[in-house]
């Protein structure tokens, strides 16, 4: 059953996880588990993030100072780390989003040339 389930889901491209984390944190500070759930939920569960890979990515973003981390208490009164977007991260998100749009557009144009020909 699990194999079939995984086939329907799409593995993430290298580097896109960073972009997704930054976009998710635009909504406000969150802890790790919440970020994973948010990504899954907002992609209609198509994107299957191996939740563990979130942590190297978070640490990478912290090291680059695109996100910050602070201690806080979660909804059920447990101590947790909350990750938040920094000003630098916000700027980076804009850059990365543009890049992604350009990439996605280019790939789409190659994969579906017929549509464009039809337009012209």
């Amino acid at each position: 059953m699990s194999t079939r389930e995984q086939k329907e889901r799409i593995e993430l491209l290298q580097g896109t996880l960073d972009l997704l984390i930054l976009r998710t944190l635009l909504l406000g500070p969150m802890h790790g588990h919440a970020i994973a759930k948010a990504i899954e939920y907002r992609s209609d569960e198509v994107l299957q993030v191996e939740q563990g890979s979130l942590y190297p990515a978070l640490h990478r973003l912290i090291k680059r100072r695109w996100i910050s981390v602070e201690e806080g208490t979660s909804e059920n009164n447990r101590r947790a780390k909350f990750y938040a977007l920094t000003a630098k991260g916000r700027k980076q998100l804009a850059i990365e989003t543009n890049k992604w749009d350009a990439l996605a557009g280019a790939i789409a144009r190659i994969l579906r040339p017929a549509e464009r020909e039809g337009e012209s």
Binding site: S2, E50, Q51, G52, S53, Y55, P56, H59, R60, K63
Partner: peptide, 17 residues
């Protein structure tokens, strides 16, 4: 299962630093 290989995640996180 959903989390993946815990040891490898730890290693990869260490490697970030």
């Amino acid at each position: 299962r959903k989390f993946g290989n815990v040891t490898r995640v730890k290693e990869q996180t260490w490697e970030v630093w």
